[in-house]
């Protein structure tokens, strides 16, 4: 039987959830896209914290590396490339805000109702697998998906370069 979480853990969890969800709300509502990316980074860091709370420290580390280090940076570059200064002040949401809120609210209600109603039977003792175990499985059990994903990344890389190249550089 797993021991119940300590109060400190709950406080940490609530703080992380607040950062994550609050930043996520900022991401979808801020007018300035640059600020939105910063909020996204904050939200992603919150998620990394949640991974740590789940005792999945490897995933948390990779998550920070990829999202904060690569994807968010990429977003920043593209924003600097495409968004003009006068766009910053423009309204960043369209006319279907009300239907969207209704839809998302309904969806959220459905999800919550479903997950709270479900009878979860957690394991007796949590023995989270270590980095060593993950590395071993990745190169044995999950070797094929691993290779396929690496191929996918390569193709995505080439595709991204091809798409982003300037027209006049194509000879």
């Amino acid at each position: 039987m797993t021991e119940p979480a300590s109060l400190l853990a709950w406080i940490a969890f609530v703080c992380l959830v607040a950062v994550t969800v609050g930043s996520a709300v900022l991401v979808v509502t801020l007018r300035n896209l640059f600020h939105a990316v910063l909020a996204l980074i904050a939200s992603l860091l919150g998620v990394a914290g949640l991974y740590l709370m789940l005792l999945a420290e490897f995933v948390a580390a990779i998550h920070v590396l990829i999202y904060v280090g690569a994807v968010a940076t990429l977003f920043l570059f593209v924003i600097m490339l495409t968004v003009r200064i006068d766009d910053a002040a423009l309204r960043q949401s369209n006319r279907q805000v009300i239907p969207a809120i209704a839809l998302c609210g309904a969806g959220l209600a459905l999800l919550l109702a479903a997950l709270l109603a479900a009878p979860w039977t957690p394991v007796e003792e949590i023995r989270p697998p270590g980095v060593q175990q993950i590395g071993h499985d990745m190169l044995t059990t999950y070797l094929l998906p691993f290779e396929v994903v690496s191929l996918l990344l390569l193709v995505a890389l080439v595709g991204a370069v091809t798409l982003a190249r300037r027209e006049d550089q194509r000879t």
Binding site: T82, N94, A100
Partner: peptide, 19 residues
């Protein structure tokens, strides 16, 4: 679930493709 809902909301309302 909250993150999913927020994400869907953003996808539906953001005018910018980046958003």
């Amino acid at each position: 679930a909250a993150l999913v809902a927020i994400g869907v909301f953003g996808a539906l309302t953001r005018r910018s493709a980046l958003g």
